[in-house]
Design a protein around this nucleic acid. Structure first.
Lengths: 351, 351
DNA sequence: TTGTAGGCGTTATCAC
DNA sequence: GTGATAACGCCTACAA
């Protein structure tokens, strides 16, 4: 007579039907293990009683699997969800997980450690994206966790990369070939050990190459510059701390507002966001593009192509990166590291 | 002597230390329930043995809560993660969940039903976004689930809305006032019952107002048009099935390629994505903006403001919408429906 | 302050 | 083809 506040369970259902819990469980999970008749009867009764099928929490405890894959993002969720590149990556991951009956749990390496640890013990596997790996983080992951690293390496786990160095070499080489320039400059993304949103000088130490892809991009730029007779160390560099218009703009302004004879006439940017910011601000200053200043980016985001002039850039298939990482974590793909290609896009910002 | 493949558990730890499991549990969950000394000893031993703290799966079964909030998106994850408006919404949700020690599970109403049901029994609560509610969907959610609806209504649950009708009235009224126009037209987003990517004629039936916010937006446009002497029914409408450049472009081309004397000189667009597509395509045809054609959008996405000419549009605070929904689902906010304001942004596409 | 024991809702392994 | 039963790992009255 007591009002059943409690959710109905598999056991209730079994009792109601006068069968064992095992049979009910089988009705849901292994149709071949019982007669169609009985199964039908069970499913019907379940519907009648409002039983929604086995509880995921209990099932995951019992089976050890949750069908949840966690993506651990280096940046904050807020940033990652608004950034075109990581959004596309996530969308690739989601696409595959989805089609394989898994769901996506979003985590950020910036989160409280305990939260990470918690979520960690729920997930069946981890895709870690763009992270400079900190010991701490890996401590909170299960030891033998399935893990795929994207855009960096973790010993003992496969990773997915893009050919940053050759791509940057190619685009810079191209830029320097077709339109001879006097004053190239580089705008980096998160390259210094200590935060620096502005000009990089000799005081700054750079992050080591193992920790960030931006070192590879820089290496590609430098190789091209050297090939065209520049001393790499002489080419001025600016650093941007976050790949957003707001953070980027002051740095770009600092560059564009240099006296005309010092102002760079070619900006090798490590991201489209940076290049687009430069484009917007250059246009608003009445600079002609590409005559007064050439711009090249990296990423190939849509925003750079759906405008005039279109950005000259390198397209990386972020979506494919996500799909690949997801297939790897699900074991649909051999578990060895992979290197994805890129494609040069010739826009009008650097013909 | 058997190699302990098994993960170490709380019980193992207790045995190892010669204390009870309750004490170990308390060491992790209620520090005040045992002496600092003992707690210290337990934590140290845990670290030594590589115990990562209570297993989330078991804990969630026992306590009934998982600290996971699911966001159910009307569109596919792929679309939602690439769309500026929903990304910003998600980022608002994530921000709050994050700060409250919860994590975000991403679901799509387009997913297989069983998947949804599964994930449903994991989550502590649901934020359902932009959904035209289908019975089916709600069937797979727990009966008494905590649920917040965003951009539509669900009986018995609070919702978060934006003042679509007044906002659309205001921007259309403004557009019609400052620059008298002969041939206004409306470009809708997902407004017809049957898919239609092109001109809407009298054959088409529209979705009912309960199911979609686009009906409210249309009502606002119509009210302004009527006020300026147009017969609402005479104003031509085109429909766009998905808020992406690719899907949008052919419709816009159809409009722009009309003979000059039939071509609309004012496009009231239901989203910035639509308006930006129109802007790009109009520019590439050499049309002058706003002289030849005025454009207004809706949303206020960054992309529309970081360019020249800037979009005239209505800003809705998608991020705030997400934050609010998240606070409501966590009980940090009174559980009644809320209506958020919007802000008119005067850009150059319609002065 | 600490220990005991029951149970959260399933699924897997056996028997029958 | 079906039914007992023992885990899965943890939390929490309650008793000591």
């Amino acid at each position: 007579m007591s009002p059943p506040i409690r959710r109905i369970t598999l056991k209730d259902l079994a009792r109601e039907l006068g069968v064992s819990t095992a049979t009910v469980s089988n009705a849901f999970n292994r149709p071949d293990q019982l007669s169609p008749n009985l199964r039908e009867r069970i499913l019907a009764e379940a519907k009648r009683l409002g039983y929604r099928g086995p509880d995921a929490k209990a099932r995951s405890l019992r089976t050890g699997r949750s069908r949840i894959i966690a993506v651990v993002l280096a940046e904050s969720l807020t940033y990652s969800l608004n950034d075109a590149v990581s959004s596309e990556f996530l969308s690739g991951v989601a696409e595959v997980l989805d089609s394989q009956g898994h769901t996506l749990l979003l985590l950020s390496a910036r989160q409280a450690k305990c939260q990470l640890a918690d979520a960690a013990s729920m997930a069946d596997g981890f895709i870690v994206y763009g992270l400079m790996p900190s010991e701490e983080l890996f401590d909170s992951l299960p030891l033998n966790a399935a893990l795929v690293a994207v855009d960096f390496n973790v010993a003992g786990h496969p990773s997915v990369h893009v050919d940053n160095e050759p791509a940057c070499f190619e685009i810079a080489d191209r830029a320097l070939s077709t339109m001879p320039r006097q004053r190239p400059a580089i705008v980096n993304l998160r390259l210094t050990r200590e935060p620096c949103n502005g000009r990089i000088d000799t005081e700054h130490t750079l992050l080591p190459a193992e920790l960030t892809i931006t070192r590879s991009r820089l290496a590609g730029f430098h190789r091209a510059l050297v090939r065209h007779g520049f001393a790499a160390a002489q080419v001025p560099m600016w650093n941007v701390e976050e790949n957003t218009f707001e953070v980027c703009a002051p740095v770009i302004e600092e560059i564009l507002d240099l006296p005309a004879n010092e102002r760079p006439d070619l900006l090798l940017c490590m991201s489209d966001r940076i290049a687009l910011t430069a484009l917007t601000l250059a246009e608003s200053r009445g600079l002609r593009i590409p005559e007064d200043i050439c711009l090249v980016g990296f990423d190939g985001i849509a925003e750079g192509q759906y405008r005039a002039p279109r950005l000259t850039t390198v397209r990386q298939e972020s979506g494919e990166k996500g799909r690949l990482a997801a297939r790897m974590i699900l074991g649909l793909e051999p578990g060895h590291s992979r290197l994805l290609g890129t494609e040069l896009i010739l826009g009008e910002t650097c013909p």
